[in-house]
Design a protein around this nucleic acid. Sequence first.
DNA 1: ATACAAAATACTGTATACAATCCGGGCGCC
DNA 2: GGCGCCCGGATTGTATACAGTATTTTGTAT
Lengths: 226, 226
Amino acid sequence: MMMEEFEVNASEFLPLREVVYMTLRKAILTEKLRPGERLMENTIAQKLGVSRTPVREAIRMLGDEGLVDLIPRRGAQVAQISLQELKDVLEIRKSLEVLATERACEIMDEEEMYALRRAEERFDTAVRGGDPTELAEADVAFHDVIYTAAGNRRLLSILSNLREQMYRFRLEYLKQPDTLANLVEEHRAIVGAVEKRDAEAAKALIIAHIDNQKTGISRMLAGKEA
Amino acid sequence: MMMEEFEVNASEFLPLREVVYMTLRKAILTEKLRPGERLMENTIAQKLGVSRTPVREAIRMLGDEGLVDLIPRRGAQVAQISLQELKDVLEIRKSLEVLATERACEIMDEEEMYALRRAEERFDTAVRGGDPTELAEADVAFHDVIYTAAGNRRLLSILSNLREQMYRFRLEYLKQPDTLANLVEEHRAIVGAVEKRDAEAAKALIIAHIDNQKTGISRMLAGKEA
DNA sequence: ATACAAAATACTGTATACAATCCGGGCGCC
DNA sequence: GGCGCCCGGATTGTATACAGTATTTTGTAT
């Protein structure tokens, strides 16, 4: 496969399509590839030193996640995410996070409870630390504990996918210092409710959590326009 | 591409991967390819008279839909759908159908209302007609009107995907004559609630609709085991 | 006979070559 | 001068060839 040592350092002997996928994904999320930009198989393949085949497959994966738009016979381009689409995604997430949280309240075991508390602490630490990447990962990890505890694999996969849609915004969002304090508080409250297995309370908290995100991101975008 | 006239009659000059995808999908849904059966790229490619490339892509599409399990370096096999997975899917659908119905109640316009009534009539007719394929399609069309009216494209796509998961069961399920009468009645009630824009009532009806499906299919599967 | 090892085989992963289609530019015609 | 057609280049779609790995088979030794 050659692959002149180059960009892609990550753990070798992974399928190439995964490597290409992760590389492109990162480039999109960090805005190195801007929305609307075309992804040409040949160009990318040459740039990464691989053949078109894994590039093709990687691009299709990104298409499934919604990070790129696939246009037949025209190729792919980095997806524009409109405010409308963002709202759509958040609306779906609200329904499904509620579901996940309710189920988690019902069937979560002690081990998972412990993991949840640990995840909350990690997020707490990350907020104080200030590294945005770690912060985002800690947030992901926190919610993942709940998703997983819900015991519905399909739900986990859908929620993970929806999260991807928002990643670009989240990175910005998580930089706003005033939101961070809120987030810590919200997470703490959610953990409390789940620990008591109080599904009603947890549901309300999750709804508020998502609604806050929606207003926060909307405000952020509105500010950016100006 | 040659493609010796063969099986795949459907509208030519569609990308081959689509043709292969539809062919395989149909084969799985009609149980010509049984759960657990391996899908080997070479074999399928030869059988359909195409190369491995479009077959590969088609198989990956089926993987996304959950109709086949993709195992790295081992290929794909037709997914076993356990009762648990079925319940998982129905649980998610319940949340999202509720969401779709509520939104539809809010923002559906007159044209879509009309389409909904037409779809209900079509289903009604199909029940009397007795052709199971038409029946399934009419049911899909009915729910699609609501999904679409909800005005959330991502939601539409997720719900469509989840429906695929259940297709195999639905075909069997829709053959049971006693359920059919119920279904017609449930659809009629849903249309009534949506027409009045009574989101609460519609929500309750949709929940009942899905719960009925769940018990119906569970009973059917239990019967089959014995 | 069984267990282990080694080789053959069969399959996926990757690369490359070829075909078909779409887009833009230039030229001619109206 | 504008509209349309044709041609060439660019890019995706498809086919095939090659490489690497996992699985199965077969042989041998205990």
